[in-house]
């Protein structure tokens, strides 16, 4: 029995199809990431699953419950950090944890939770004086007060510096080792690659690709490419004298390697061209390349708050 099951989920805001018929499931203990530009429908999806937003059409179950109608029971078993997590200004993290635990009727050990999210140093600082990373870690700790089976993290590292981001990642990895199911939305490819067992790429309310990052790369990527830094005549030479598929942007030449033999042909041709060249690399499409291909450059600057 999967922890999360979504079938044909739709949600409209007026004429806007925020979520447009998506289906996926998340196994227990899995880290699943919804990846997409701003406005893709990630937050709407995750909020429907959290029981914070009513779905339009389709079926959604989390831990075998309908999130909206069984929210009261479900919320005792899930942990959530909303996007752009904020809290009351004055409690310290320690006080916040005791307070939030009390709302669940649980007596929590704040120091233990703070240790788990690596926030012991800031235990007694007012929330309003915490840094972005510290706030986010407190959000993580709060989502754990009820020992949840499923944790929903909506863009947990947006706006954090690289160091703080890595600290949050560390906490997410721990959640996985503890056997919790984690659903993570992000618009950072690196984050999805680092943390997720499986990724679904969303755009305009639809899932455009889903699988492990390797699966997505090999399915949607363009295979291996040889990239050579070269100015001037190399591109022209290759186009005129070989049957290789080549592209160039002035500073570098990209040769598409359709099979292994292409690599030798390319190397020979480069040598014969007599052109000045350097920094030869062979790589395959990264998740980023696939993402940009599927979502398009315009997706990277989409509007906030889907």
């Amino acid at each position: 029995m999967p922890a999360i099951e979504v079938e044909g989920l739709k949600k409209n805001y007026g004429d806007l199809h925020a979520v447009d018929g998506i289906s996926f499931s998340v196994e227990k203990g899995e880290v699943f990431s919804l990846l997409g530009p701003n406005g893709a429908g990630k937050t709407t999806t995750i909020e429907v699953l959290e029981g914070l937003r009513q779905k339009g059409e389709g079926t959604t179950t989390v831990l075998d419950m309908d999130p909206w109608s069984k929210g009261y029971d479900l919320h005792k078993r899930i942990g959530v950090i909303p996007q752009g997590f904020k809290f009351l200004d004055y409690p310290t993290p320690r006080e916040a944890l005791v307070y939030y635990g009390a709302l669940f009727g649980k007596k929590v050990d704040p120091d233990e939770l703070l240790r788990r999210v690596i926030l012991e140093d800031a235990a007694n600082i007012w929330f309003q004086h915490l840094s972005g990373g510290q706030r986010q870690k407190l959000g993580m700790a709060l989502s754990l007060v009820n020992d949840p089976e499923v944790v929903f993290l909506d863009e947990p590292t947006t706006g954090l510096d690289p160091q703080a981001r890595r600290a949050v990642w560390e906490v997410i990895r721990k959640l996985k080792t503890e056997g919790r199911t984690v659903m993570l939305t992000t618009h950072y490819l690196e984050e999805a690659e680092e943390l997720a067992d499986r990724v679904a790429i969303m755009n305009h309310g639809k899932i455009v690709a889903m699988g492990t990052t390797e699966e997505i790369e090999s399915k949607y990527g363009s295979g291996q490419r040889m990239i050579v830094k070269s100015k001037g005549s190399l591109l022209k030479y290759l186009k005129e004298n070989t049957k290789l598929e080549v592209e160039g942007d002035g500073g570098s030449v990209t040769i598409i390697l359709r099979d292994k033999a292409d690599a030798f042909v390319a190397l020979g041709a480069i040598q014969e061209s007599g052109a000045d060249w350097g920094d030869l690399t062979i790589r395959r499409d990264s998740l980023e390349d696939v993402f940009l291909k599927l979502v398009g450059e315009e997706g990277r600057s989409g509007r906030e708050g889907e």
């Binding site: 919320h75 005792k76 997590f85 709302l103 009727g105």
Partner: peptide, 13 residues
């Protein structure tokens, strides 16, 4: 605005 109600709605309160 700050989604604190959302946070509270996730508790049995």
């Amino acid at each position: 605005r700050d989604k604190i109600f959302k946070l509270l709605s996730l508790t049995p309160l």
